[in-house]
């Protein structure tokens, strides 16, 4: 292996503080994700995982620190700029437009900066991946079941080919069999070269797919390491309690 100067990491947070009005959620968070790698955020509820995800997609503007994507400083820019750079964030809970149809949801997500034929091709690929969505393309997304809504956001991610995918609690409220499918899908996305940032309550699932992991406690990073090391750390944490 020849030694070349390392390219900048795809996503890099440095000394980030953020919160909601008077409420401070994360303190002095710094980490970097190399292109093509999978990072998972672990920690109890309230530790600040979702806030970090929101900082990475521009939903929450950090009060301090910098957010760099492919070397470009994005902190303070509106969320749509992040999206246009190729960051796709599937937020926790409902992440589709309930008042738009399945097809409209897909068009909205894929329409920007692509020509019509390309969009149509991607939409039909989404229906190939999830035939159930194809059957319901005119149905309002709000009337889909929880699992189908999740399929819709996943299908969008798969055919969109983002540079960075932020998946927040994708398995929430899903039956075990569907959780397995979701993770199989994420693995495909990873194999296609997409960088992933995953937040997950199921530690086993998350570490099964991740290269690296961060453990958060009370808004700060308490431990970091590769997935193997972190599995041991999480075990320690759980047995201590």
């Amino acid at each position: 292996m020849t030694i070349t100067p390392a390219p900048p990491p795809l996503l890099e947070l440095e000394h980030v503080d953020a919160g909601y009005g008077p409420f401070h959620a994360i303190f002095d968070v710094s980490f970097a994700v190399e292109a093509g790698r999978v990072l998972t955020l672990l920690g109890a509820n309230g530790a600040g995982k979702t806030t970090i995800a929101r900082v990475c997609s521009g939903l929450v503007v950090p009060t301090k620190g910098s957010v760099r994507f492919a070397g470009e400083e994005l902190a303070g820019k509106p969320a749509y700029v992040y999206a246009r750079r190729g960051i796709v964030h599937a937020p926790e809970g409902r992440s589709v437009f309930a008042s738009l149809s399945v097809e409209e949801n897909l068009h909205l997500a894929l329409g920007r900066g692509r020509d019509k034929a390309d969009v149509a091709r991607r939409v039909s690929r989404a229906y190939e991946l999830f035939p159930r969505l194809g059957e319901r393309r005119r149905q309002l997304a709000g009337t889909l079941s929880g699992g189908e809504q999740r399929m819709l956001s996943l299908s969008r991610v798969m055919v969109d080919e983002p540079r960075l995918l932020i998946a927040d609690e994708l398995s929430l409220g899903l039956a075990p069999i569907i959780v397995d499918e979701v993770y199989a899908t994420l693995a495909t996305i990873r194999d296609a070269g997409t960088t992933l940032l995953i937040i997950e309550q199921h530690v086993d699932h998350a570490l099964g797919i991740a290269d690296d992991a961060l453990l958060l406690a009370q808004g700060e990073i308490s431990e970091r390491g590769d997935a193997l090391q972190m599995r041991a750390a999480v075990q320690r944490m759980l047995t201590n309690q």
């Binding site: 109890a44 509820n45 926790e92 609690e169 929430l172 409220g173 309550q201 530690v203 759980l238 309690q241």
Partner: peptide, 11 residues
């Protein structure tokens, strides 16, 4: 109705 939905391990 899915009382553990969204809860972490300890909760």
């Amino acid at each position: 109705d899915e009382p553990s939905s969204g809860l972490d391990h300890n909760e």
